[in-house]
Amino acid sequence: MSPRKLSSTGGISLGAIALFAVVTLGALVLSASFLSPKSDSVAQPMRFSHKAHFEDATCETCHLYVMELASAGTPSLEDCVDCHDNTLSENAEDQLEEKKLEKYAEEDTEIPWIHLPRLTADIYFSHRMHAGLGEKPLECKNCHGDIGKSETLPQERQIAFTMSFCVDCHEKRQASNDCLMCHR
């Protein structure tokens, strides 16, 4: 069944149900707010340029599992160090950031990236399904926009991953809009 309209409550049309519906609607509106990013500024532990990395790499180089798992995977410190092995770039500003990386490596602590609000835990989203499988897999930018061109980490999601964002695209591409496929 595709996402239900709130009016179709079946054969029972008690006042109580209407009341509950109103309460729920309100609550849904409230709850929608936690899907959209907060406006407080996000102070990341270090500068990171997707654009600079994109010159020598693809998304998959660092987001290792994007074709294989549900999660694309945040690169671990080990993944960073794999390429950044003591060689410094010419740019002094970049060097400053690279030294931060070295320090994390020396201390053997993961970089405490702050994640922007993501999908709630009750939603199943598979990068593998969207980007790795099928006849016409999506490209990363279909959902992540121009992140590859950004020089700093974004302060908010460039595209809000609301339910309608998913459902619209699924409709357009004739993918299933069955609740079961995403809600768990």
Binding site: A27, L30, F34, L69, A121
Partner: peptide, 19 residues
Amino acid sequence: ELIGLASHEEERWPGPGVE
């Protein structure tokens, strides 16, 4: 409690989930 649904706790698996 009825309206408490908005406070759905967000529990996330910390890693990529390699099985």
